[in-house]
Every structure is written in structure tokens, then in C-alpha cells.
Design a protein around this nucleic acid. Structure first.
Lengths: 345, 345
DNA sequence: TTGTAGGCGTTATCAC
DNA sequence: GTGATAACGCCTACAA
């Protein structure tokens, strides 16, 4: 039943030429006669030939495979990034192996090991929220396998990073709330060991400072942004208190949507009682009531940017340093969840 | 800079044994002396040896890689399925290559070809919405590479399929609306060439029939369930008419959320004017106002089921037929978007 | 423009 | 318990 695999030798034999010529023909080598090439391709199609990547990889010491490790795939942002990466990378003849760390350092380490053993030509990583140790990336560095970090990056390794201007984003979000009359702005965010959350926090603080508002520890919560965590945080730190904040800046749209739901459930009006700003411009931010003001996060652009850098590096002489810090622009998208002043544009 | 790759020969030389023994030791072959094994493992660790999968694959004619082609990754359902698949499959020593068809037959064909050339040991597919021709799967069949279809399946190929009971789900959703007093239930769904949508439609029709309600062509819309499509459909077919439907059954939660937003925007009250039921139990169905009644879709369970079938097949003698149709159970999750009768529990 | 030869790193087979 | 050898299918010097 199992058909025998066709090799270049089979083709060579049938065509009365050498396997070398077949190999070259298949690769469109310029030195091969066009007619010969045509005969090779025709026969290859006829016999159902498919090149054996292992043999080829084994010989060339290159896999044409790029590994991607992300915390999760289930956000619009992530799938946009991946979509962008995939498109560019496919066009350049590379394949993608994608894996999820589910926000766990341990899974990230396992994934990294797998990628390493699969001998990916390059690695693209967005760190899990609790990754504190980076030794699982050392083998890549030792073997000169390029790593690009995006979104959730680290300064602990000096690789190329692609990020948005999280400081600016945090600043814009906070300033917007201030402009809307908010003075007690609760900031709920992820693990601030991660650059994205740390930088957004800095932006938040700077905006407060610029508007003569003191930063208050009791208006800052760091958790995992899950539904349960949002619930606990809001019930304990907000709803049970007498004095409510008048603004809320959450660094992820799903979490912002949870928050919205929870607050409304507690009888609060959005944006009148509390104005809300999210982050990412995920689909979910558009279907809540009211829709959520958020930060646009250009996933596709980021993905394509990452892919281009990597491909230029891999297909080039491999020399140019892979140490650049690329910062993409971002904007605030204003929706009803935060508009409290009619006069505001 | 680039360190030389360590091979079993290097280990063999240093240990004064043969490469064969090293290979066996690394694989924990029972015939090898425990002490020898220990020496091998220790040295391997010390020298930073990693096995070369290509050489191994080349030799064994097996890749330990499973390909997955899905329409999109950005739904909770899909990531649950993948998560389930990944967990089981990883434990069994397999890797996953994941790719998205973005609902296009052409991309699906390209992806399939890539998977084929990567010599995946098996393929897991959820069809793109517009796939009408299945010839891209022929090469797999010819080579006896198992294919499992899940969710979006086809009867055109008799492979194993894993689905939920879409008929029952459609029936439950529709009957629920009827129980809530709805009589003119609009059904908006995807391409009914796809089993999932076809079966849900059958369930919808049967529920109507069982309650002496005539099926009306003008209350049935098939589109791509995108935001734009929902907008067009609802504006043209619903809002501009004098007579409104009193129920809406949309076969995907994002689309249901869009619908909810659009209808509310047109001044309609949910569920009083129109009761809404979605599908999938995605996150998004819980954060709209009101939250959306939906069908629970057990993604994780489905993923694990798929993985188990495949692994049993691959690691077994490969004999057992891969032709079973597996149907998982499902439920209706009732939320405020459809509750119109106080008496209803 | 085409061919020869050798090796990429592993594992199956057979032998000891 | 261990080893020698060949083969998996391809690609790249070098040769012609």
C-alpha cells in the first residue's frame, strides 16, 4: 500500500542523467539546460517526487525553519503578529513552528529546548509573564542562532527587540483620563518585571506627574489580568472601599472588559463613575457596552517587521549585528468608556 | 565563534567505545550496561551534545511531527483545541507545526503542501470555510499519512472526524428561543457547505418543525460572519424592514456580539425586542451587555481526544482503521441575552 | 552543461 | 554487551 518514496536517483535513472543534474535542475541552477530542467520537472511531477527535507537539511546544516514561542495565541494582537510573521517568512521560503508557553516559565523552557533540538534557524519570542531566568536561551546564543524578542522583551540578553512605545502608550492613556477629569486613576497591570508593563507604568506615572497628581501605591495593582484576578482586585480594592477611583487603566482589553462587566455589576456607571481605558484594540474592546477606549497595537506591522529583520539576517551574510531596539508607533483609540467631557473633540 | 556541533562520534571517541553503543546508550537501549550509559549521558551533557533530528529522521523515515491546519487561531475555541492537542502530543514525544488557512482554500492548499513536504507523520485539519476541493489531501492518503478532521469536516474523504453534535446544538439553541416565546427566529450562519453550519441549520429547522413553526427563507442568512457581513445582513434584512424577527441565532460568538452591538445601536432592546443566542462560549460572549446565551464547545476535550486517537494510531501497529466518526456532547449555556420569561428557571 | 565522489549524523543489521 | 558497516537522500567541491 505504502508507495515507495521517489528520490532524485529515481528521476536520474529514468532520465538517463546524473542525480547531481537532477538536484541542480530542481533548484533551478543557472548552469542547467532549460530543456533538461523541463524534463526533470515534468518527470518529478509525474512520479510524485517530493524533496526530502531531512536529507537536505542534514547536508546543508540549515533547516529553513523559524521557531516562535508566545505566551498565548488567543488574542487578536497575537494572531495579527503571527499572521504578519507567517506571511513574510513563507514568502522567503521559511516555515514556522509555533508554540505557546501558557505564561509559564517552565513550559517556555521546554519549548525552547524543543526548538533548539529541532535546530530552528532563528527564534522569535514573546516572554511568558513569569520568566525570570533566561538560561534556556543560552544554547542559541552559543550557536549564534539569532533570537528576536517582541512585545514582552528583556534587557537581560542583548538581542534585537521589537516593541511599541509602551511608555508613550501608558502616558497617552493616563493623560487622556486626566483630560476627562479623572484624578484618582487606578492602574491594573501585569507583572512589572516585564518591560511592557514596567514601561506603561512609567508612562502612567509621568502623566500623573506632569499634571501634578501624586502617584498612590493604593491605586496600583499588579496581577495576572485573568478574570478571577480582576474580580478579586476590583472587589477588594475598589468596590468595598468608600472612596472610589474615577478612572481605570487596564493594560489588556480582555481584562478591561472583565473590569467593565464587574463594575457595572456592582452598579457603577461607565464612564460617569469610572472611566475605563484598555490596551491592544482587540475585538472585544468594541463589543462591550460602552465600547472601550484602548491603545492600538499594530500586530501585523510588528510581525512583518520582525520577519523582515530575521530574513535579511539569515539570507544575508549574517554579519549585521542583531542588536537593534525597534520601537513602533502607537495611538490611543477613544471610545465611549472614557468620554466624560462633551467638549472633548 | 560558531561552536562545532558535537556528534555521537565525538562522544564515542572520548569514551573509547563505538558510535553504535553511544547511539544505543542515548536511547536507553536495554542491552547496554548501566555504567556505560551513565558515562555516555554524563559526557553528552558535558560536551553539550544534541541529537541531530535530521539524521535521525532521515534514517528512521519518521519525523515525530504532526501538522495542524486551522482556519484561524484567534478564538478561544481554537486555542483550547490546540492547547489540548499540544499537551497530549508533547507528552508522547511529538511536535506540532501549526498553520492558519485564514479561511482561504488557496492558503489551505499551500499549507497542506508544506506539511507534506515537511513529512509530517499525521495531519489534523479544520477546513477553511470556502474549501470545496479536497485534492490537496490526496498525497497524504496515497502515502497512508493519517488525517483527522475536526470541527469543520467533510464527508468527501472518509477519514476520522471529531465533532460536536451540531444538530443537537442547533436544535437546543432554537428550541430555547422558542421556549422564550420567539416565533420569528432569524438564523445567521456560515457557509452551509460546511458540516458544522449545515448540521446546525438542520437542528434549527427540526426545532421549528417540532413546534409547528414554518421555516422561512427570509429568516435565513448565510454569510462569512464577519463584522461587515453582520452589519450588512442586519441593516438590510432586519432593521430596514417593518416586521422584525423576535429571535436571533448566530453560529459564532463574535458574530453574535457584533449583532448585539448593531441591534442595540439601532435602538432595539435585547432580549425584549430580539432574543439572541450565539455559539462557542468564547470569552466575548460573557462581556457584552447583556451577556450572550451560547453553546458550550469543549475545545480542550476535543483536542485531547484528537491527539489520543492519533498517537494510538501512530505508536500502535498503524492498523486500526482511522475511519471513526466521533461526536462529543455539548450544552446550552443560558445568559441574559435570551431570557424573556421570568418563569424560565 | 553535466558528472563523480564523498560526506552530513544517525540507526538497523548482522556479527562477535 | 558491544562493534563494523551500510544506508537514509541530498548537496557541493572538483573534474571533465
Amino acid at each position: 500500500m505504502q508507495e515507495k518514496e521517489v528520490t532524485i536517483y529515481d528521476l536520474a535513472e529514468r532520465l538517463n542523467i546524473s542525480a547531481t543534474t537532477v538536484s541542480r535542475g530542481l533548484q533551478d541552477h543557472p548552469a542547467i539546460n532549460i530543456k533538461t530542467k523541463k524534463r526533470i520537472f515534468d518527470l518529478a511531477a509525474e512520479m510524485g517526487y517530493r524533496s526530502n527535507k531531512f536529507a537536505s537539511n542534514l547536508r546543508r546544516q540549515k533547516t529553513n525553519t523559524i521557531g516562535v514561542i508566545v505566551p498565548r495565541l488567543n488574542s487578536l494582537f497575537m494572531s495579527s503578529v503571527l499572521s504578519g510573521i507567517e506571511r513574510s517568512v513563507n514568502n522567503a521560503g521559511y516555515n514556522l513552528i509555533i508554540s505557546q508557553s501558557f505564561e509559564k516559565e517552565s513550559k517556555e523552557k521546554t519549548n525552547a529546548k524543543t526548538m533548539f533540538n529541532n535546530r530552528v534557524d532563528a527564534l522569535i519570542v514573546s516572554l511568558s509573564s513569569d520568566t525570570a531566568d533566561f538560561s534556556h536561551f543560552d544554547p542559541f546564543l552559543k550557536k549564534n542562532i539569532p533570537i528576536i524578542f517582541f512585545d514582552r522583551t528583556t534587557e537581560a540578553m542583548n538581542s534585537t527587540t521589537v516593541v511599541i512605545d509602551n511608555f508613550k502608550a501608558g502616558y497617552l492613556a493616563t493623560e487622556h483620563l486626566i483630560t476627562q477629569g479623572c484624578r484618582e486613576i487606578l492602574h491594573i497591570t501585569g507583572n512589572i518585571d516585564r518591560n511592557v508593563y514596567a514601561d506603561r507604568l512609567k508612562g502612567y506615572k509621568k502623566a500623573l506627574l506632569d499634571h501634578q497628581i501624586d502617584f498612590r501605591e493604593d491605586l496600583f495593582i499588579s496581577n495576572d489580568l485573568s478574570e478571577g484576578a480582576m474580580h478579586d482586585a476590583l472587589i477588594a480594592h475598589v468596590i468595598k472601599r468608600k472612596q472610589l477611583p474615577d478612572g481605570l487603566f487596564v493594560t489588556n482589553d480582555s481584562a478591561a472588559a472583565f473590569a467593565l462587566t464587574i463594575l457595572k455589576g456592582a452598579g457603577l456607571r461607565i464612564p460617569e463613575d469610572i472611566a475605563v481605558v484598555g490596551f491592544n484594540n482587540d475585538l472585544i474592546s468594541r463589543v462591550t457596552e460602552p465600547p472601550i477606549t484602548t491603545i492600538n497595537y499594530p500586530g501585523n506591522e510588528m510581525g512583518e517587521r520582525i520577519a523582515r529583520i530575521l530574513i535579511d539576517h539569515l539570507d544575508g551574510d549574517g554579519n549585521p549585528d542583531l542588536n537593534s531596539q525597534i520601537v513602533l508607533n502607537t495611538d490611543l483609540i477613544i471610545r465611549a468608556s472614557s468620554i466624560r467631557k462633551k467638549t472633548y473633540e
